[in-house]
C-alpha cells in the first residue's frame, strides 16, 4: 500500500479513542491489517495513551476534604467583606475619579498584546448596561489598589467580564451606604463631562 493511501493521524487518534464506528471503523481496521506503517502508528498511539493513563492525581490528606466546605464558606465570607471594604473606598472623595484614570491607563498599558480585558465588550457594556458605571468604578478602584499595592491585576479580569458582580455587592450595602454610592456615582458622571476614550474607542458621551 502506498504512503498516500495511509490514514490521517487525527483520524487514527479518533479510531484509537473508539470514536470511529460502523463502516468507517471497519475500513480503518482493514487498512491497518494490510498497512504496516499505519499499524505501527496505531500501536504507538495506543502505547502513548496507555502511558498517559498512568497519570495520577495526588490525593490530598483526609483533613482537606473534611474541611473543604468549611474552607469555601470561610473564603466566601472573607471575600464578601473584602469587596464591601473596596466598594466603600468609592465613597472617599476624589478616589473613584482618580481610580477611573488609573483604570484607563492600565487598560491602555495592557494594549492589544494580551486581550484579557475585552475592550469591545467593555465599551458595549458601558453603552448599554444599567450597572455599567458601577462596574467601571469598582474595577477602577481595584485597579487603583493594584497600582498602589502592586498586587496581581486579576481583579480587572473578574469585574470587567462579569458585570453582575457589582449589582450583587450593591445589594449588600445598607441604605445609607447605597445613597452615598449613588451620589458619588452621580458626581463622577458630572466630573467626566466630555467623552473619554479607552484604547481609542469612545466609551461614553
Amino acid at each position: 500500500m502506498s504512503a498516500r493511501d495511509c490514514l490521517d493521524e487525527d483520524r487514527l487518534i479518533d479510531f484509537v479513542m473508539g470514536e470511529v464506528t460502523g463502516g468507517e471503523a471497519a475500513g480503518i481496521e482493514e487498512h491497518i491489517r494490510r498497512c504496516p506503517a499505519c499499524r505501527g502508528r496505531v500501536e504507538s498511539l495506543r502505547r502513548t495513551l496507555d502511558l498517559a493513563a498512568m497519570d495520577r492525581v495526588p490525593e490530598p490528606v483526609p483533613a482537606y476534604w473534611e474541611h473543604f466546605a468549611a474552607g469555601v464558606r470561610h473564603r466566601i465570607r472573607s471575600r464578601a467583606e473584602s469587596r464591601k471594604r473596596r466598594i466603600r473606598l468609592i465613597l472617599i472623595p476624589g478616589l473613584a475619579t482618580a481610580a477611573a484614570s488609573v483604570l484607563i491607563v492600565l487598560m491602555l498599558a495592557r494594549g492589544p498584546v494580551e486581550p484579557v480585558v475585552d475592550v469591545e465588550a467593555v465599551v458595549a457594556e458601558i453603552n448599554t448596561s444599567a450597572v455599567a458605571e458601577e462596574v467601571l468604578v469598582e474595577a477602577a478602584v481595584d485597579a487603583l489598589l493594584v497600582a498602589q499595592f502592586g498586587e496581581e491585576a486579576d481583579l480587572l479580569d473578574n469585574y470587567l467580564i462579569e458585570t453582575g458582580d457589582v449589582a450583587e455587592i450593591v445589594t449588600e450595602l445598607d441604605d445609607e451606604e447605597e445613597r452615598e454610592l449613588i451620589n458619588k456615582l452621580a458626581t463622577i458622571m458630572e466630573s467626566r463631562g466630555s467623552a473619554e476614550t479607552i484604547a481609542g474607542k469612545e466609551c461614553w458621551s
Binding site: E9, I13, S44, L45, R47, T48, L49, D50, A52
Partner: peptide, 16 residues
Amino acid sequence: YHHAVRRLKEMLGEGG
C-alpha cells in the same frame, strides 16, 4: 485534543 495526543506521542510514544 489531537495536538495534545500528538505531543504526548512525541514525548512518550517511542520511549514507552
